[in-house]
Write a protein that binds this DNA or RNA. Structure first.
Lengths: 133, 133
DNA sequence: AAGACAAGCGGGCATATGCCCGCTTGTTCA
DNA sequence: TGAACAAGCGGGCATATGCCCGCTTGTCTT
């Protein structure tokens, strides 16, 4: 009872579930929602350092670094050096752009499905509530 | 922009954030919100099999098994055998009950904080929206 | 009763996440 | 200029999660 009302547990459950929707849709491209989202974020301000990206994604820097390494291995991003020799900067590789293009409609599809299931108004509410947390 | 409107990414972000609230509050007890939640769930129907618990938690069975092992190592739960020799059944150990008792008020505190920040009505809305996903 | 089929697990493989420690590179101040 | 101090990372440690394969134990059908 009290458990079912736990914001955290419900959030975790919902996140796993919703993530799997996106993951399924993106599966043909070989990337999951986390990777796809990261690609999008990199594209927005490439070249971008791990630290900056981590700030924007609200993730630990080390997490971003490791995830970036996975994307690099898949040849979706390139990890280079900035002027500052300490900085590792990320840029989208050709294959990465391909994934971004092919993934956009798939991603939109899931998004639309969820909006439809929830109703546009409710979807907006959800966004606001999540942002307020 | 489109990224900020992504249900999934927002959910993931919110989950990480909210989880950390609970984790901080429970830190003195040495357990995180996932473990605490699992303890509560076990207590509700102990003894319970890994498979049953996995269904209830909406988690993969293997995940539950591994998490249970961690709890067992911490001496918070006991892993035994059911009549069916295949089944591994979980029960709360004495230390587990202790954690459950001491954790309840801490958990309530976070819950209340969130309710307060969101407003009771909004909190309820959030619950409903999450359930609808 | 024997063989087919199903249930319940453990462990391997891969990713995701956070925290902390230590190394390298930059910057700043005396 | 040389010595603190700060920034940016990588890698180690631990947990979390899902999927798949293979082993053991039960059940069911012929």
């Amino acid at each position: 009872m009290s458990n079912d009302a736990c914001h955290c547990v419900l959030l975790r459950k919902a996140t796993r579930k919703v993530s799997s929707y996106y993951d399924e849709a993106l599966a043909p491209l070989g990337v999951n929602i986390g990777q796809f989202s990261m690609l999008r974020n990199i594209r927005r301000t490439e070249p971008v350092s791990l630290t900056d990206l981590a700030h924007r994604l609200d993730l630990d820097r080390s997490t971003v670094g490791r995830n970036a390494k996975v994307l690099a291995r898949m040849e979706l991003v390139e990890i280079g050096h900035g002027e500052d020799q300490r900085e590792a900067v990320l840029t989208i590789a050709p294959k990465g752009h391909e994934v971004l293009e092919k993934g956009a409609p798939l991603w939109d599809g899931v998004q639309d499905e969820i909006d439809a299931r929830l109703g546009a108004g409710k979807a907006r509410q959800l966004q606001e509530l999540l942002a307020a947390l």
